[in-house]
Nucleic acid binder design. Structure first.
Lengths: 286, 286
DNA sequence: TTAATGTCTTTTATCGTGAAAAAACAGTTT
DNA sequence: AAACTGTTTTTTCACGATAAAAGACATTAA
């Protein structure tokens, strides 16, 4: 079992959803772009669709024969990357079990527990190390630094520096920059969400991330943009863990975002700074 | 050839230098701490030293029999980590050959060229990616982003933010903090280097790194401290490449450092800020 | 009874290998 | 000739295996 074919399975599932919309599928290269996979994978997908009677495939002609049924889909859990699987297991362990600082992490044990090879675990840990939660002892084990208060404060400090600077850069962008249209679109989504906050409050975190990423991108600095990965990762797991007053918190945040957007659109640096700081301050509480 | 014994060889060489100073070696655990390796490795070293007639080893007694000769040492190049070897090859390729942005990086090709397994190259690239010079396409190759002017500017922007903040934190440290003694020591070293700048100017880069790392550490923020790795890496290879007016540049920098140290010692935030900015400004030129 | 040495076990670092996926090449169709 | 399909080659991803190095346990000396 050297490599799972999750790329194929995931693309297959997404391709099934395309069948609902059309009578016939586009060309192989076009499908490849659409699904974000190579033509090799596209052809495997088409081959199976033909086999299961979903389409008739003859060279360029790919006619849809029937609607996909639920059992045509591959199970969700088979579409995950190994990296995702490892990350989830690791984070669960970290959040659920005792995640005391100083604890040592054992590659082999982790690999056995998750049921994957050691190489994948090693590579995951190396990638994960940039989040500042673990550290490597040369020729030896990894050390957990813990989800401590100190960590949160250090993260927040950088976040504030970067966000304030990015917001200023954003406001200074010329009127004809395409980001203003993006901002308008996000503003509309915020209004929509605000009006249906009672039922859709859990969709906020996704919107939140898109909004902040847009702002950070205005810095035109790869280190600032990349750092948002750290923030996003922490937010992601923090959300899953701490659901207390989620609705209220999100409602407040939407309001702050709207004020923040307003300030950005005014292009008044003083206002931007104030709105940004206000939002960050309330984010800091959690 | 699953794993080279460079840890052993390097520790062996360092242990040879200890023989000059003493008549007999300390206990195994003590030696382990001294050399930074496990007792297993210490015992391999002792075993070989006994074999080559350097010491007489009987349980606790480890008497030095003769001075080490040059040919007792393992060749320098055999003491390098695989990671170091890969990094060097990679950087040489990057700096020497055409390092145009957008170029693809091929794991397999790199591995073959350097003569190592693909796993090691992969792990190196993952670690290296945090420097912001390369980027991964999922399930596909790495893309080189290039040593461009933009990269230098983005790096400088963050560096300035972090350094100014760290310097302020440094100056605010209480009088009884041990860092002041460290600073005094560094100041003395700067004076010494300044007086012998004609012959020792190439030792500056090492001093420079220690100085800035001390300041960054005062931020007590792991992200700031870790970021200095990026700066140090770039400096390291930049120095090797651009030796023009090295002496003059370093002489100026030593002077700026001394003024900077003076400002820190005054604990006057205004002065610190000014000295820090001045130094960063001239560093920016290059 | 503390701290060393001697011995055995576990973990890390690295490689070769093979399937999945991408990419390159060659031949067709419009 | 531009864009597609068919076929072959190359690269990435992940595994198990193995030597180096670390770590744990048992024994002995001071």
């Amino acid at each position: 079992m050297s490599k799972s074919n999750n790329v194929y399975k995931d693309a297959y599932n997404r391709c099934l959803r395309l069948l609902d919309e059309t009578r016939s599928l586009p060309s192989e290269p076009e499908l490849g772009v659409l699904l974000g996979v190579s033509r090799t994978t596209v052809r495997s997908i088409l081959a199976r669709m033909e086999e299961t009677g979903l389409i008739a495939w003859n060279k360029r002609a790919k006619t849809v024969l029937r609607e996909p049924r639920p059992d045509d889909f591959f199970p969700e859990e088979e579409t995950d990357t190994l990296a995702q699987i490892i990350e989830r297991s690791f984070m669960r362990r970290l959040l659920a079990g005792g995640a005391e600082a100083g604890m040592q992490i054992n590659e082999l044990e982790l690999a056995r527990e998750i049921g994957v090879g050691t190489t994948s675990v090693r590579e995951f840990l190396i990638r994960f190390s940039r989040f500042g939660l673990i550290e490597k002892r040369r020729n030896s084990h990894w050390v957990l630094k813990g989800f401590t208060r100190a960590f949160a404060l250090e993260l927040t400090e950088i976040r504030e520096m970067f966000e304030i600077r990015s917001a200023a850069a954003f406001a200074a962008l010329p009127r004809d920059s395409p980001v203003w249209a993006d901002l308008d679109r996000l503003e509309a989504e915020h209004h929509l969400l605000a009006s249906e906050i009672a039922t859709r409050f859990n969709e906020f975190s996704e919107l939140d991330e898109r909004f902040h990423r847009l702002i950070h991108r205005a810095s035109h600095n790869r280190f600032i943009v990349d750092f948002y990965d750290v923030i996003a990762m922490i937010f992601h797991y923090h959300y899953q863990w701490n659901k207390a007053q989620e609705r209220e918190r999100n409602e407040v945040a939407v309001g702050e975002h709207l004020a923040y957007i307003e300030a950005l659109k005014s292009r008044d640096l003083g206002k931007v700074d104030a709105a940004c700081r206000k939002h960050l301050k309330s984010a800091r509480q959690t």
